[in-house]
Nucleic acid binder design. Structure first.
Lengths: 261, 261
DNA sequence: CGGGGCCTTGAGCGACCTCAATAAGCGTGG
DNA sequence: CCACGCTTATTGAGGTCGCTCAAGGCCCCG
């Protein structure tokens, strides 16, 4: 699929400017004009959920679509074999609520206290017939989401874990909600196991990879959840010709120094 | 994102019935009513491309959206580090042509001789304002594509390669174009390296995995490109509790027989 | 101070990748 | 028809990245 309307509409639902983000390209966001905003407000229902609440479960009956206003939402798919995969993190401005045959395909969980907007599907459909432009906004949103998904897939198939983690850090820095561009501090809102499940690996490996990145001075860690990334360095790592990126995580990078007695 | 209109519209662009497919759930398909069909025909341009032709290159200027009529199209993303990832295979009825900032994000290649339909973006946009229902169809298409993408991601993160390959075979069997439900013969149109790049692995590993599946009687191979899958068995493998699926590919499955002298 | 989350670190092993050789399919031309 | 080359697929052997299991810090809160 594709974006039939290539340029976003006037007003953004999302917090601030994104042109300043590294790795440009719109984040999945429903963008509405002021009129549409009021139109939508008529059918929107505001919801507050506290951290660690399940917003909807995988396979449950679907009749609502959501929009993040504040906070962070995690989309997880529980695999039949027990493992679980984090499919996405949704930030303010992002829509979510993918379903099929009236059942949600995944589970949505609030990672922080969240403020959400909720739409009944039938209402939304009605509104679409009244204002095709609104539907257009949703189409663009869907396509943006699609791009994000492909990006995610590409990240996960980067075999060397170091690259995956590097890519993840870069992605996070595109979110103004957790990356303070002026201080250069990135706040990791999700825990290690969320990151691991997002990248298709394990907590231990994520931890080790972050350690290596720190050794290589590609990130500096204030604490486990606050890092100062060297974005250009990380990007260089990402596009590096595999060899240097394969950087064995195991070897604690003892240089060639012959062991001094 | 989500499907604001949950039920497909009357007429399918796609070949035949899909309810009979294993693992139901709509394949990404633009579904149009007869009127929409004629409406769209006004701006559609029919294109023939022969096998192995690049339809558009990654990063090239995007102004067209495509729809597969006949044949198979492969979407590939070339990674900066040299590797390449197959993002999707598109069958008759599927739209493609994802872009961002007027540049195609990926490369589209015809794997077989193809018959395509081509739309200029601006034309399509105009048509959307005239017939919002048409836009609705495209929205549904985008959402369907999104589901496929998530499915793909889940497949690829299934770590044990055996499961990935099993899942791939099952997916293929959902395509009436290559799976003959009556004979039970599946024709693999793509070559091993396409499969490998789709699953995020290597040709050798795909080859070995197929070998194991054959040993386990989960598939029978007429030749390299024609297999007779045991769908229920494969599905059982997919949901199996990891242990048995980890089936070491290496060991040529010499049973426990103590070596007879 | 003790307990329970998180995160990190360690040691060992195994699934998969890599590289390399062999085999099978297929068209072309003698 | 077979010889020849080219592409595609399979098979083999060895090395290694990342997983597993297990122990040890760190931090918060009672």
């Amino acid at each position: 699929m594709d974006a039939p309307v290539s340029r976003p509409l006037p007003l953004r639902a999302r917090a601030e400017d994104q042109r300043t983000q590294p790795e440009a390209g719109p984040v999945p966001t429903i963008v509405l004009s002021p009129e549409q905003r009021t139109l939508v407000a008529g059918i929107a229902q505001s919801v507050q959920v506290s951290a660690k609440t399940v917003i909807y479960g995988q396979g449950t009956h679907a009749e609502m679509v959501f929009l993040v206003r504040k906070g962070l939402v995690r989309i997880t798919h529980q695999l039949e074999d027990g493992r679980s995969q984090v499919l996405a993190f949704h930030w303010p401005g992002d829509p979510f609520g993918l379903f099929e045959n009236d059942a949600y395909l995944n589970e949505a969980t609030a990672l922080t206290d969240c403020e959400l907007e909720r739409f009944r599907l039938s209402d939304l459909r009605d509104l679409f017939t009244k204002d095709p432009q609104l539907q257009s906004a949703f189409l663009i949103g869907a396509v943006a989401e699609l791009r994000m998904n492909q990006r995610h897939l590409l990240l996960v198939t980067h075999r060397p874990i170091l690259k995956r983690v590097a890519g993840f850090v870069i992605e996070c820095c595109r979110q103004p909600e957790c990356y303070n561009a002026s201080t250069g501090i990135l706040t990791l809102i999700m825990d290690r196991s969320d990151i691991a499940d997002y990248l298709g690996t394990t907590v231990e490996t994520v931890s080790r990879a972050l350690g290596v990145l720190e050794n290589r001075k590609l990130i500096m860690r204030r604490d486990a959840r606050h890092v100062h990334p060297d974005l250009t360095g990380l990007k260089r790592l990402l596009i590096s010709p595999e060899a240097e990126a394969t950087g064995r995580i195991d070897i604690p990078s003892l240089p060639l120094s012959p062991r001094c007695p």
